[in-house]
Computed example of a mutant assay.
Amino acid sequence: MRRWLAMAEQTLANHSDRLNAINIYPVADADTGTNLYQTIRAAAQAVADLEPADVGVTMAVAGRAAMEQARGNSGTLLSVSLVAMAEPLAGARRLSGPLLSAALQRAQLRAWSALSEPMPGTMLSVLEAAAVGAGSVEGAQSGDESNQALAETIDQAVCAARAAVILTESQLEVLSEAHVVDAGAVGLLLILDCLRSAIVGEPLQEDLMDGLSGYKVQDPNIALSMPEQEGVEVMCSITLTPLAAAGLRMELDAMGDSVIMSAVSEEADETGAYPWRIHVHVPTAAVALDAIQAVGDPSNVSISALSAHADEDAHELL
């Protein structure tokens, strides 16, 4: 797990510029590569020197760190996935095909449910395809804990994920018109191939990116050619009861879009409240912050302009 996350951090650093260049959905703010890199970096650093009791603990620590430092839609969904993957792995001393299949299945269910308006043609579709691919392996179904079954499971997950990435271009109109695949989907594919590399002890697949529309180095920066976006992205952490969280989600849905809410852990405090990570796109930060502060005390607040043309310092941490 530590090797996987460290490799994913380096790989996303190498690919972030190209991912940013094709980032046009849900908004063309040209930061998906950067957001995924910074999110996975938080996860990798959190476990770099960890000597955990089991695989689940490693993933839980990584997921929680990623959740607290998540950036953007893609980073938030990635962190939700990591947190969810940890649950079936609790107590496991090593990864196996059946456990990996269960982890991917849990991750895709949690990621789809975290979004108020989930859409196919995004990293959600790729995560779902990876889970289906992993679950199709006989060893994963029969409980085979051999290394061979684990290798077959991750191979099928990556193969299915790549096919899903190719499909994203035809699933969303904005991608079809721009002749590009979804940036978050490609980023997730790279992360999954890093997991494959860590499991089977082979380099990343050199032909993995071949044929992905818009992803050649010489392809234009599509994001910068799109109309400038208005509004801001607001992210924060907050502790709420499930009922209060549901009410806040409804308010955020009414005032903005790209609403993502997910519990950071399944451990409630003495009042029955859970820690949540919130993400929303709104016309102004004030409208979201007013609604959030009305129900709790937010922390780790992040505000970013939704524009590929925004200055580097347009991102604020409060």
Rank of each mutant, 00 (worst) to 15 (best):
L82Y: 00
V132S: 10
A66E: 01
P298T: 11
C159P: 02
P203S: 08
Q38R: 12
D182K: 04
T39R: 02
E312I: 13
A310S: 14
A244G: 08
R277N: 09
M250E: 15
A245G: 09
L192V: 07
Q229P: 01
V295H: 09
E9P: 02
Y25L: 10
L167P: 03
I278P: 01
L204Q: 13
G91F: 03
A246I: 10
P120H: 09
V259N: 03
I238R: 00
W276L: 06
P275R: 02
E152Q: 15
L192W: 05
R18C: 08
V55T: 06
S299G: 14
L5K: 03
S113G: 08
V55W: 00
P242M: 11
T11P: 05
R196K: 12
D253N: 15
D297C: 10
V132A: 14
M235I: 03
R18N: 07
I199C: 10
Y215N: 05
D193E: 10
P283W: 04
V132H: 08
A129E: 05
S225P: 03
V137N: 03
D269V: 12
M7D: 12
T153W: 05
V27S: 02
R277P: 00
N14F: 13
V132E: 13
A149L: 08
A130G: 08
S96C: 11
H281P: 05
S113A: 15
Q108M: 06
V301M: 12
V232P: 01
Q218P: 01
E169Q: 15
A308E: 06
N35E: 09
V27P: 04
G296E: 06
R196A: 06
P227M: 10
E152R: 14
T271F: 08
A43F: 00
T32Q: 05
L82D: 01
V301N: 06
I22R: 01
Y274N: 07
Q205N: 15
L89V: 06
N35I: 09
G231N: 00
D17M: 14
Q141G: 04
H179F: 10
L82V: 13
G75W: 02
P118I: 06
P120A: 12
L109W: 07
R3H: 14
L172A: 01
T34Y: 05
E230N: 11
G201Y: 11
L208C: 10
H309V: 10
R162P: 04
A28L: 07
S142V: 10
A65E: 00
D210M: 12
S213A: 15
V57T: 12
P26W: 00
L89M: 13
L5P: 01
Q108W: 07
G139E: 09
R249M: 13
L306I: 11
G272C: 09
A103H: 05
G33N: 11
A285P: 02
A263M: 14
D49S: 13
D31M: 08
H315C: 11
L175W: 04
M255F: 07
A305I: 11
L167Y: 09
V301W: 03
P242V: 09
A46N: 08
G187I: 02
L317E: 11
E206R: 13
E206Q: 14
D54A: 03
C194Y: 00
L50T: 07
G247T: 04
W276H: 07
G214K: 02
T11Q: 12
R277K: 14
G201R: 12
Y274W: 13
A254N: 14
S262G: 12
L99G: 02
A163E: 15
A178D: 04
L100Y: 05
P52K: 03
Q69F: 06
S146V: 13
S237R: 12
N147H: 15
